[in-house]
Design a protein around this nucleic acid. Sequence first.
DNA 1: CTAATCATGTAAGTAGTTACATGATTTA
DNA 2: TAAATCATGTAACTACTTACATGATTAG
Lengths: 190, 190
Amino acid sequence: MALEHAILVSLLEKPGSGYELARRFDRSIGYFWAATHQQIYRVLKRMEGDGLIDAREVAQQDRPDKREYSVAAPGREALSQWLHEPIEPESVRHELAVKIRGAAFDDPAALIHEVERHRKAHADRLAHYLAGERRDFTGPEAPRALDAGRELQHVVLRGGIAYERMTLDWLDDVIATLERLAPPHAGAAR
Amino acid sequence: MALEHAILVSLLEKPGSGYELARRFDRSIGYFWAATHQQIYRVLKRMEGDGLIDAREVAQQDRPDKREYSVAAPGREALSQWLHEPIEPESVRHELAVKIRGAAFDDPAALIHEVERHRKAHADRLAHYLAGERRDFTGPEAPRALDAGRELQHVVLRGGIAYERMTLDWLDDVIATLERLAPPHAGAAR
DNA sequence: CTAATCATGTAAGTAGTTACATGATTTA
DNA sequence: TAAATCATGTAACTACTTACATGATTAG
């Protein structure tokens, strides 16, 4: 149940409402742990009930009021404990790879468009990561290094960048392979 | 619900029992779509009920009998239809990245062992992929190219290899970063 | 005779998705 | 006054995980 832990990390980095968390899960933290607002609200409620987080009603003039959550001592403890437990190295779910192998039993050429669409999505994400890196991790603030949080956010971002670059290269390979299989006679099967 | 589609692809590549599928999901196809035997048996039953696959009782002398499944015409049709539908570019779930960002609020040095454990798992997987590539995709059978299934299996495997290589490099970066944060004063926090 | 492999499941619980719903405030 | 953003939820469903269970056959 890593969503709880992802929420704890995000709230330690900065307290916020369910809505704000949902937006973070569309950006930074969500790049490696996706969650919808429905799920977030449900889990926040449970975590509050378990005493892991505290809620504080915040009245706002220019916007609807909100409930701001922050991490309570038992939440910090729970996170710390989880950090010291081993986790299983990721079991991947790569739907596009299923499609690519499935294309052998259909028309490989028909998949080219879909793969190109994914390629574009990954190129956009890479551009977004690189912009974030330029914004947050370059410039003269470097001497103030040894800020653990900053360094660790950066190394995770570098992972995202490496992942997107690798994926782009691979998708080019996939497209080239599909094109090679297409020209002679469309509609190949085993 | 891509498990159904992954099963269809796997059964088109080669018919088999639930047990055999479960083993494939521990190897080849499972490298990009994980599933346990419990889930597989349940989905197989549903798919049979939906007419997507056919079952055939196979008596064996040297082993317990089994039910061998193969793809029926409606199953082929369902796969073909799915292949022509667009899917969302993957939403990633990278638990280790959550831990790395969480380490800012605990002892970064304490995470080094965990990351090294993951590094080893990925190194093993890479070695396994490379052995599979040497076994199945090298040698003099090259001229018999244009076998779509073979080519597509290979490009998916190349993706797995690229992913593991990228991950190893990144985990080295992570370890170096954690070590850099560790020496002066263990137990940093923001 | 014991462990390993082959083979198939049930039951209970947790996590996650999709659809639906409401209402405030702000900007065009 | 309509659309966008901020803000929070419920309900129903589907997917997935974990624990438990059984029984055959084979190799050591």
